[in-house]
Amino acid sequence: MLARLQQFITLGLLATAVAWALWCVQRGYTTWAWAGAALLVFGYAIFLAIELVLVWFVHGNDPAPKASAAQLFKAWWAEVLAAPRVFCWQQPFRSRREPDHLPPSSGRRGVVLVHGFVCNRGFWNRWMPQLRVRGVPFIAVNLEPVFGTISDYVPIIEDAVKRLEHSTGQAPVLVGHSMGGLAIRAWYAASGAGRVHRVVTIGSPHRGTWLARFASTQNAREMALGTDWQRALEALEPAQHFERFICFYSHCDNVVFPASTATLPGADNRHLVGMAHVHMVDHPLVLQAVLGTVVPE
Rank of each mutant, 00 (worst) to 15 (best):
W56C: 02
A83K: 04
T16M: 06
H166I: 12
W76F: 10
C119D: 10
Q170N: 05
H251M: 03
L233G: 04
A186M: 09
P205S: 10
L233N: 10
F147M: 11
A49Y: 05
R195G: 03
Q218F: 02
L81P: 09
L14A: 15
A140T: 09
V146W: 13
V161P: 06
K66M: 10
V273G: 00
K66H: 11
G12M: 13
S68V: 08
I9T: 06
A33N: 08
L14K: 06
I157K: 00
P92Q: 11
F47Q: 06
V200H: 02
S106G: 15
N120A: 07
T201A: 13
W32K: 04
A3Y: 15
A83Q: 05
T149N: 09
V25W: 14
G122D: 02
S250L: 03
L131E: 04
A183L: 02
I50K: 03
D282V: 02
E158C: 02
T10L: 07
E237V: 05
D100C: 10
P129D: 10
V114D: 07
W23R: 15
M275S: 08
F93Y: 14
F93W: 14
F8R: 06
W187K: 10
F245V: 03
N125T: 12
G180L: 02
H206G: 06
G208D: 09
C88P: 00
Q130C: 04
V55A: 03
G169Q: 11
V133W: 09
M223H: 15
R132D: 08
I150R: 11
H101L: 08
A193Y: 06
V161K: 02
A276P: 01
T149G: 11
N219S: 09
N125W: 09
L5G: 12
N254D: 15
A183F: 04
F242I: 01
V278C: 14
L52A: 05
G203V: 03
T227N: 13
V86R: 10
T261F: 02
H251S: 09
C24F: 11
S204K: 01
V173D: 00
H279V: 09
Q7M: 14
R207E: 10
H279F: 05
R108C: 15
V136P: 08
Q230F: 06
Q7A: 08
H241M: 07
R213C: 05
R85V: 12
T31Q: 11
R85C: 08
M179L: 10
V111C: 12
H251Y: 06
V281Q: 09
V295M: 05
S95Q: 13
P99W: 08
Q26H: 14
E165L: 14
V146Y: 04
L102A: 11
N269D: 12
A262I: 01
Q288P: 00
Q218P: 01
V86Q: 10
W124Q: 08
